[in-house]
Design a protein around this nucleic acid. Sequence first.
DNA 1: TGTACATCAGTGAACGCGCGTTCACTGATGTAC
DNA 2: TGTACATCAGTGAACGCGCGTTCACTGATGTAC
Lengths: 217, 217
Amino acid sequence: MRHWRDPGDRRGYHHGNLKEALVEAARRFIAERGLGGFTLSDAAKLVGVTPAALYRHFSGRDALVAEVAERGFDQLAERLAWALRGPGTPIERFTRMGEAYLAFAEEEPGYYAAMFSRQGEDSPATGPWGRAAQTRREAEASPFNLLVNGLMMAFPDGFDGADPRVIALQVWALSHGIATLSAAGQLPRGPGMPGKLDLLRAGVLAIVQGAGAGSKG
Amino acid sequence: MRHWRDPGDRRGYHHGNLKEALVEAARRFIAERGLGGFTLSDAAKLVGVTPAALYRHFSGRDALVAEVAERGFDQLAERLAWALRGPGTPIERFTRMGEAYLAFAEEEPGYYAAMFSRQGEDSPATGPWGRAAQTRREAEASPFNLLVNGLMMAFPDGFDGADPRVIALQVWALSHGIATLSAAGQLPRGPGMPGKLDLLRAGVLAIVQGAGAGSKG
DNA sequence: TGTACATCAGTGAACGCGCGTTCACTGATGTAC
DNA sequence: TGTACATCAGTGAACGCGCGTTCACTGATGTAC
């Protein structure tokens, strides 16, 4: 719990915390208007600073968005790690990771959109779930590896010979699909239709229990 | 197989097929540059027409993108229906629907991006998988209902009491997740990691076989 | 077959706007002595 | 404690650009007689 100044908290000529404030503003605008609708001018205005001031901290618009994505991966990893460290049986904790993932996607659409926007072919190669995995964050603490760990702790007997990383990949894809369909308003609602949390829980359970069954013919 | 004129085929003052050509151009540009990078001017230039001409056929940019999305749902439904009608056992045909879905997402990123862009809260309510379901296309032929049908044909014994629509929802979410992660370059590759098609096949099999297992405690 | 005319899909010039980015500059901060 | 000075995070004006959209207009098409 660090004590940043509030985003709008200007004290005279120097902002004192401009970089953090700009990232925060970008996150908010991306959440509200989507990646395409976000502009540097808006972010600068919200923070109470000239657009040009931004260039003291970022090389340009893309760099700011990349920073938002970076922090998004960090935040997600933090939430997943927190769920994994919590009380309860390994299976309960693993289930809580799924809830944490969906909660993150819903509560932080700005981060989420920045993280999974295709960065264009010209940008540096994206590693497995965030190029951050190889840089700032240790690879151990990447969201994907946390998921694999949670899975192996929850099901120590393995998955009938199947690679835990493959199971984790399926679980992630399902979570991502549910999160994005829900965000796009494409998840049908109605009597008899489960909420996205139930959908994920049932799907993950099925994936885990059905794992390896196909490989045996 | 309708015989449209080619997009660039101008014959004198009147284009003759401008609306189709514009939709086609928009689809291409969205595929190449993403939704945010697509502009009306580009589309008009590609077609060989003044930007103003566009307003004879669409009320504006949003309407053009909506039309692209609309046709995307139609195209997807067509592909799914084609897979479902093909030869083989019901399970083979159902498997082919999954392949058709991933192929559509990969080969038609323009359509796909338009279809699943969040339209903003101000747009008309999106139905289950495309508001088109209630308008142009009969609800029967919506991609989602095709999926449900394929599922029920492939597994006539049901899913241990589980609602086929819920299973279909899980399958769709998994497919969508795999397709979007792959498009974003976030699917880890490497030795031992399955391709997206294998990933989907194994995941779907697990979902189908594991269905209902959770509801019994 | 030929002419008059209605229709309407296109033109092209113009608009106001706001974007991302640059540049020379300035004023606050904090350090050295 | 006070003064001189280096640092650098900010300003503010300006830029070129290309966007989506409008408008009065024009030229091709096809129908009526």
